[in-house]
Amino acid sequence: MSGVGGRVGWRVGALLAPAFVGLGVFVIGPALVSAFIAGTDKTLTGPHFGWVGAANARTAFSDADLGGAVRNTLVYCLITVIPAVAIGLALALAAERVAHGRALVRFALFLPVSANIVAMAVVFAYMFDSSPDGFANTVVGLFGVAPVDWLGDTSTALPVVALVGGWRLTSFVFIVYLAGLTAIPRSVYEAADVDGIRGFARLRHITLPLLAPTTIFLGVFVTILTLQTFETVAVLTKGGPLDSSTTIIYYIYEVGFTGSFRIGYASMIALLLLVVIVALGAGGALLGRRIRRAREAAA
C-alpha cells in the first residue's frame, strides 16, 4: 500500500521490471538509437559509418521522391479517413436501432477488421485485375466504361490501394461509433422526445455533439494508423507504377531495406514522421480535453 520505499519498493520493481525490459530494449532504446542513426550515413551492410549531422534532414527536405511519397500519403489519408469516418458513422447510426438480425449486421460489419490484410490485398488485386473479365472491369463495363488497368495506371493505383485501406478502416470506425452510441443513456433520448426533438434535429443537436469525443479520437487515431500504411502498398503495387502509390512508410522501407540499404537516411525520415505523429496525438488529446472541460463547465 502507501509505503514509498523499502518493502513495497522492490515488489513494485519486480512487477514492473519485465515490462520495462521489453519496452526499454525493443521500443524506447531503439527509438533513441534511431534518433542517433538519423544523424549518420550508416548503411545496413557497410560496417563503417560517420556522423553527418543534419545532412540527412536537408536531403529529406530536397528529396523529390520523398516529396512525392508525402503527397501520395496525404492524398491517401484524405480519401480513406474522411469517407471511412463518415460511412462508419452512418452505418453505426443505422445499425444502432436494428431490431432483427442484430447479430448478423454486427458480424458482417466487424468482419473486415479481423481480416488478414495481406490475404485481402491479394483478393482485391484479383478483383481489380486489368483483364476485361476482371470483377471491377465487369462492374464498370455495365456502365459502358472501357476496361481499366487499375493497378498499372498511375491515376488509379493509389485510389485502389486506398479503397482496400478504407474498406477495413470503415469497419473499425463502425465498431468504435457503435460503442459510443450504446454509451449514450436512454434518458437523454427520452427527454429529447418529450421536448419534441426528433429525427434529424435530434441527430444534429444531441447525438452528434455527444459523439464529439469519439469523433476526435477516431479522427486522430485513424489518421495516425493511415499514415503508417504499408501492407496494402507492399502487396498490391510495391509503390508503382512510377512511384505513383509510394507512401512515406513504403518509401522508408525502400530506402532502408532495399537497394543500397541507407538506414541512416531511412531513420531520419522515420524520425520526421514520428514528430508529425506525436504532434497529431498531442493535438487530439488537447482538443479532447478542451471539449470535456467545456462540457463540465456547461453542466
Binding site: L15, L23, A31
Partner: peptide
C-alpha cells in the same frame, strides 16, 4: 499499488504507443 513515480512511469508506457514500428525496426 502506490509508489513514487507511478504517474511518470505510466506516461512513459503510454508514450511508447506513439512510436511507429518503422522507427524501431532498424535498431
Amino acid at each position: 499499488l502506490r509508489f513514487r513515480g507511478r504517474t511518470a512511469l505510466f506516461a512513459v508506457v503510454l508514450a511508447t504507443l506513439l512510436v511507429p514500428a518503422q522507427v524501431t525496426a532498424v535498431p
